[in-house]
Design a protein around this nucleic acid. Structure first.
Length: 468
DNA sequence: AAACTTAAACAAA
DNA sequence: TTTGTTTAAGTTT
């Protein structure tokens, strides 16, 4: 693309702050011609990826300006372009906000002396603003502890496309993506407890931005699983699997596209998501917690298992210990930690993980939601769009006959070839049972009656594992 | 009018 | 505080 070999912002000799009524001050009328030095220091370069590619940069290319005048103090590039360059210059095509800042300071002469907090407020604000505003940038959850999100270029282009303010009759993909991230806006201002901002997209559920593989996925669908409040549930958000990252170079757009959802999302989905969104916050699972200790506090049945950070910390579901259906209940934490036969194809899992992730999360939600929380109107599983992979709301994986509005095809029907998924489902199933038995039934507060619904074809009909 | 930059209010972590 | 999201206003093309 653009990144040809461009000098960091060519400094043209004639450069002069030419009339720019703008109130803004130009601290550095004439940027030192210093060549972008990788700033030996910059240890900040997170995760050692520091070896920042010295200088990317644009040059003559992008936005050739006719006159010798430059549009901005640093050249003719817009913030968006600079950010794009920064991201592209990174080996993995992704950077955290801090890294972007760092790149700016190191690569663009104009910002060289503006790295300190004092002089940086303004442009950093603009950077952030641009990242959020343009659909060409997508935010990806950063697995690393305490790290901010990765920012990547929207594989789909997203172009300079601006995020549409509201739902339009027809949106192109990038717009939709943008929209997805947009919908979060709503609840900000003007929220009188009971008055949804009229005319604003307010009533929509919050969305979370896509993943690199989200390209054509309908953000509406799985984007919405991000908790409005940014609770743990937001960790369901996709993570960049190492594998995917590596393939990043390859045109994986198509690949992802093939996994994508259709563009149509039934109107009800939004509402649906609202509900789920709410439930999400109630779900203790789905939080790839970096700190193992914290997991000890979580209900044993849920997927927060320390082990996940080991071999497949990048797959949203892999964390669940492969407990076979013969061992319905995780015996002990130790057991969980030791039973670690990794799924055969972590690769595949990683690739679809965003989608599966949503499904899985949703499932847990449905489980919890329907049985212990609300759902007076029994949340419907959003009808999976035709070519959608498994949004398939894995409901079927719940071996126990929870009251469900729909009946779904069996897992094997839908995923005839994906053993990993089956395995995963099995695991989940076990967890669910365990939860039901230990966390719910023991409470005595719920009145489950499984038998009637299982006329005897239950795999483990004797329920010998049930706590007596 | 669209694309940008700059500011700033706010929220979440 | 930092990171993100939005809204708003002023400029430039």
């Amino acid at each position: 693309m653009e990144g040809a070999e461009l000098s960091p912002v060519d400094i043209d000799p004639d450069f002069e702050p030419q009339a720019r009524p703008r109130s803004c001050t130009w601290p550095l009328p004439r940027p030192e011609l210093s060549v972008v030095t990788p700033t030996a220091g910059t240890p900040t370069a997170e995760e050692g990826r520091a070896e920042a590619p010295p200088l990317p940069n644009e040059g003559p290319g992008v936005t050739p300006r006719k006159g010798g005048s430059r549009r901005n103090a640093w050249g003719n590039q817009s913030y968006a372009e600079l950010i794009s360059q920064a991201i592209e210059s990174s080996p993995e095509k992704r950077l955290t906000l801090a890294q972007i800042y760092d790149w700016m300071v190191r690569s663009i002469p104009y910002f060289k002396d503006k790295g300190d907090s004092n002089s940086s407020a303004g442009w950093k604000n603009s950077i952030r603003h641009n990242l959020s505003l343009h659909s060409k940038f997508i935010k990806v959850h950063n697995e690393a502890t305490g790290k901010s999100s990765w920012w990547m270029l929207n594989p789909e282009g997203g172009k300079s496309g601006k995020a549409p303010r509201r739902r339009a009759a027809s949106m192109d993909n990038s717009s939709k993506l943008a929209k997805a991230r947009n919908n979060k806006a709503s609840k900000k201002k003007a929220q009188g407890p009971g008055e949804p901002p009229a005319g604003s997209p307010g009533s929509q559920s919050s969305k979370w931005p896509g993943s690199p593989s989200q390209s054509t996925d309908d953000p509406e669908v799985w984007t919405s699983f991000r908790s409005r409040t940014g609770s743990n549930a937001s960790n369901l958000s996709l993570r960049l699997s190492p594998i995917l990252t590596e393939q990043d170079d390859a045109p994986d757009d198509d690949l992802h596209s093939s996994l994508s959802f259709s563009d149509n999302v039934p109107p009800t989905v939004s509402e649906e998501l609202e509900l789920i969104d709410g439930l999400t916050m109630l779900s203790p699972g789905a939080a790839p917690l970096p700190a193992p200790q914290s997991m000890l506090q979580t209900p044993p049945g849920f997927s927060m298992r320390p082990a996940q950070s080991l071999s497949f910390g990048n797959s949203l579901f892999s964390p669940i210990s492969p407990v076979s259906s013969h061992f319905p209940r995780p015996q002990t934490l130790e057991a969980l930690l030791t039973s670690d036969s990794p799924p055969p194809s972590n690769v595949l899992m990683s690739q679809v993980d965003p989608v599966l992730g949503q499904s899985g999360g949703q499932n847990l939600l449905l489980l919890g939601g329907q049985n212990k929380i609300r759902s007076p109107e029994h949340p419907r599983v959003p009808p999976a769009p035709p070519n959608s992979l498994p949004l398939l709301g894995l409901p079927p994986l719940l071996s126990m006959p929870l009251p469900r509005p729909h009946s779904f095809p069996t897992v094997s029907e839908r995923l005839p070839t994906d053993l990993d998924i089956d395995m995963f489902l099995e695991n989940l199933e076990c967890d669910v049972d365990y939860i039901i038995n230990n966390d719910l039934m023991d409470e005595g507060g719920l009145d489950f009656n499984f038998e009637p619904l299982h006329p005897g074809n239950t795999p483990s009909n004797n329920h010998s594992w049930l706590p007596s």
